[in-house]
């Protein structure tokens, strides 16, 4: 009885799936393929190599510091960094006093200790990075109806996130003539900007970074490509400040376990030496 019902249920499910498949295949084969501009012109991120890559990856603190400077002078005008506190900057090689001085260059919302009114005060190391807009409505109003996303986790919140950031920053260009010829309706609307690394090709953010926009104290290259790599390196750090510690911890753990595996194998062979199996 179980088998009979089973076979009937099996015939029903499998049979209906095959009918669906046949109809689906016929529709798929007979309908013309519709291509979209996103499908044809979207590009995967360019290759980017950072010190944090791979199982030996660690942070190039000089580069992360440069990325922080670009964030401070450019990105922070629109993008928040809400999971990062000023105290975290100590991990970038700054001393406690330097972090204190750096925090003080940022203004955060506070309360006037005398009147209790909302006011702005210099930030302390314990403060988190301030939001550039008081709320989402203000953010939309200032940015052509798009909210600039928080950048703390950007490097982990996109596929291949660090290379994505780097590609997006360096990817602004005019719309290719072939795209306009093939998909006239996909012309970038006013107020948006063409970038083949953005999923739907047009984003509200205008090209934020150009050659020579930020000067580095040590005279490091400040062309667009170098600075974009620096920003990507900085965002890898903000997304996971514990990354270097994770790699450094992982090696002893895995090597210990590899040795333990060899010993366990030898123990296993020794225990079974007189027992055929």
């Amino acid at each position: 009885m179980v088998r009979l019902i089973g076979i009937l249920v099996g015939i029903f499910f499998s049979g209906w799936l095959l009918v669906t498949l046949a109809v689906g295949f016929f529709t798929w084969a007979s309908e013309p393929k519709v291509e979209t501009a996103e499908h044809v012109f979207h590009e995967h991120p360019k290759a980017l190599h950072l010190a944090s890559d791979g199982p030996f990856g660690h942070f190039d603190l000089q580069q992360v510091q440069r990325g922080y400077k670009v964030y401070k002078e450019v990105c922070s005008a629109c993008h928040s960094l809400r999971h990062v506190a000023f105290r975290d900057l100590e991990q970038l090689g700054y001393t406690e006093a330097q972090v204190k001085a750096e925090a003080a260059t940022w203004m955060v919302p506070g309360i006037d200790p005398v009147t209790g009114e909302d006011t702005m005060r210099a930030a302390l190391p314990t403060d988190y990075f301030p939001k550039p807009y008081p709320n989402d409505v203000a953010a939309r109003a200032a940015n052509n109806n798009a909210i600039p996303p928080d950048l703390s986790l950007m490097a982990k919140a996109r596929h291949n996130g660090d290379a994505y950031v780097y590609s997006l920053l360096t990817g602004y260009q005019d719309q290719p003539a072939e795209l306009l010829a093939e998909f006239p309706e996909a012309k970038t609307p006013d107020g948006l900007h063409y970038n083949p690394y953005f999923p739907n090709l047009n984003l509200a953010m205008a090209q934020p970074l150009v050659d020579g926009q930020v000067d580095f104290d040590d005279g490091s290259p400040n062309d667009l490509d170098s600075m974009s790599q620096d920003v990507a390196a900085f965002l890898v750090w903000t997304a996971e400040p514990t990354l270097a510690k994770r790699h450094a911890t992982g090696w002893p753990v895995v090597l210990f376990l590899l040795i333990a595996t060899v010993l366990a194998y030898l123990a296993y062979r020794n225990v079974w030496r007189n027992e055929k199996h």
Partner: peptide
């Protein structure tokens, strides 16, 4: 003994994922 070997080998792969 045999499970000890299996467990150690499993942990190598598992921790490689956790850390790397």
């Amino acid at each position: 003994a045999k499970d000890g070997f299996g467990l150690a080998a499993f942990l190598v792969i598992y921790t490689a994922f956790v850390f790397f």
